[in-house]
């Protein structure tokens, strides 16, 4: 018995020796190592390019103003401080704006996802004459640049009056500019930012879910809406999560629609575009001719940007693993 295993071992060693003495073995080994090396270099290089701006901001944000003119300090500050964060949150009323933005983005995300799930499901199931045309409309909303309908949209919200219903109760149409209503209305009716894309993703996703599942539920006595909430939605979670993230992030970052509707810097994205001026105002003592140091200003501004995107990054870390799965199953692929 013992000799048997020994023999086998020797056989294996011989075999290994024979393989390793061949040139082709080393050639393939070298090739694969070379590939691994190149791949590692490429991936880490590109990752660095992507992370570079964030790293810079982190470095700047923790720097003490003393380090600004120290030539030996480039990346790692000598004096760590949290003063910059404190200053930003005072100067820009940061907590309040953060809360506003989070509430707005959250509501928009919820309404938008709801509307798009419904529409996507509808589009995946109905089939009558003209349903293709209707879906063509979804694609059309993706293709038309939002600037094309910018002015009428603005005027529509400025004199908001749906089919003359509003003017029945009040004498004149209401002005919705500088309120949150336009965001809520457009997202609830599925015409918010890039909504066409979301409908498309959901429709493709639902097409991948077999019809038999719904039929079984129907036979068991569940209604159409019951089937939808109990069978279809739980199955669509990856797509829902992805769309929610997109919707939240795009609302958070959007400067186009927000800039159009909101005049005051009430939310993050409009705050960011005026941050420099606000910080300057905050740092300049009233009546004085003293001008703050531009480098210091820029440092504070970088801190502000970092604070604005940090919630997104935290959220992203949790949701990111659903990304590929949902895209794969969404059939966007096939």
């Amino acid at each position: 018995m013992k000799t048997g295993t020994e023999g086998a071992k020797r056989g294996f060693v011989d075999y290994l020796w024979e393989r390793m003495s061949k040139g082709s073995f080393w050639a393939t080994k070298l090739k694969s190592w070379l590939w691994v090396f190149i791949r590692t270099v490429l991936i880490s290089g590109i990752s660095f390019i992507i992370l570079y701006p964030i790293l810079i901001k982190v470095v700047i944000a923790f720097k003490d103003p003393i380090d600004l003119y120290d030539a030996t300090v480039v990346w790692i500050p000598k004096h760590f401080t949290l003063d910059n964060f404190k200053l930003v949150s005072d100067a820009l009323h940061f907590p309040k704006i953060m809360l506003n933005t989070a509430l707005l983005s959250g509501t928009v995300m919820f309404l938008q996802t709801l509307c798009c799930v419904l529409a996507g499901y509808g589009f995946s199931r109905i089939k009558f004459r003209g349903s293709g045309l209707l879906f063509g409309c979804v694609i059309f909303t993706i293709l038309v640049p939002p600037q094309t309908i910018m002015i009428p949209t603005y005027l529509q919200y400025k004199n908001f009056d749906v089919l003359g219903i509003v003017s029945l109760f009040t004498t004149q149409p209401i002005n919705l500019i500088n309120t949150y209503w336009p965001f809520l209305i457009s997202s609830a009716l599925g015409m918010g930012l890039k909504t066409g894309l979301f409908v498309y993703i959901f429709r493709q996703f639902f097409r991948g879910i077999p019809k038999e599942m719904e039929e079984a539920a129907l036979v068991d006595g569940s209604g159409t809406f019951g089937t939808f909430t109990k069978i279809i939605l739980p199955n669509a979670m990856p797509a829902v999560v992805t769309v929610m993230l997109f919707s939240f992030v795009w609302q958070w970052n959007d400067s186009y629609f927000t800039g159009l509707i909101l005049n005051d810097a009430k939310v993050m994205s409009s705050m960011m575009s005026t941050a420099a001026a606000q910080i300057l105002f905050f740092l300049t003592p009233p009546g004085g001719s003293f001008k703050p140091d531009p480098l210091y200003l820029s440092m504070i501004q970088n801190t502000a940007v970092l604070m604005a995107i940090s919630p997104l990054i935290v959220m992203y870390l949790f949701v990111q693993r659903h990304f590929v799965e949902s895209m794969e199953r969404s059939g966007l692929v096939g």
Binding site: C115, C116, A188, G190, V199
Partner: peptide, 8 residues
């Protein structure tokens, strides 16, 4: 299905 599309 039409009901689902209606809001959109």
């Amino acid at each position: 299905g039409v009901w689902f599309i209606l809001p959109w």
